[in-house]
């Protein structure tokens, strides 16, 4: 699924855009607020949906090869974290949509989850 499609489905705001990644293709998604769990099961190049807004979200994305992070349920990180994402070349989005609905809408539109894609 194209990034632009995800942005429109979630009615998301772009907090940090990265050159060359503005229309990156996303093959799978994962939603969680616990970073160790994200590290345990997320696939490279997945979309990470989270309500956590600490610097560790960015480091988690960097270390696991995630290109796009979307903050859900109206959460927004501080400027320092946005700058950190810029430095790490990670696209940041923010949506007012809660986690449940964000997952639901993307899933319904055909974006597969990390546990299903690994079985394919």
């Amino acid at each position: 699924m194209k990034l632009s499609r995800i942005i429109s489905i979630l009615d998301a705001e772009i907090l940090c855009n990265v050159k060359d990644k503005s229309n990156v293709n996303i093959t799978t998604a994962c939603g969680a607020d616990l970073m160790s769990d994200v590290l345990a099961f997320i696939k490279s190049e997945a979309l990470l949906l989270t309500g956590l807004t600490t610097p560790q979200v960015i480091y988690t994305a960097e270390n696991s090869g995630v290109n796009v992070v979307c903050f859900v349920r109206g959460k927004k990180p501080c400027r320092e974290i946005v700058n950190l994402a810029k430095e790490k070349k990670i696209v940041l989005l923010a949506t007012k949509t809660p986690m449940f609905e964000s997952c639901g809408k993307l899933y319904k539109n055909g974006l597969t989850g990390c546990s299903e894609i690994s079985k394919q």
């Binding site: 769990d37 590290l39 345990a40 600490t54 560790q56 979200v57």
Partner: peptide, 8 residues
């Protein structure tokens, strides 16, 4: 803070 759930 998103850590300490026994997965580390």
């Amino acid at each position: 803070l998103g850590f300490g759930a026994g997965m580390g």
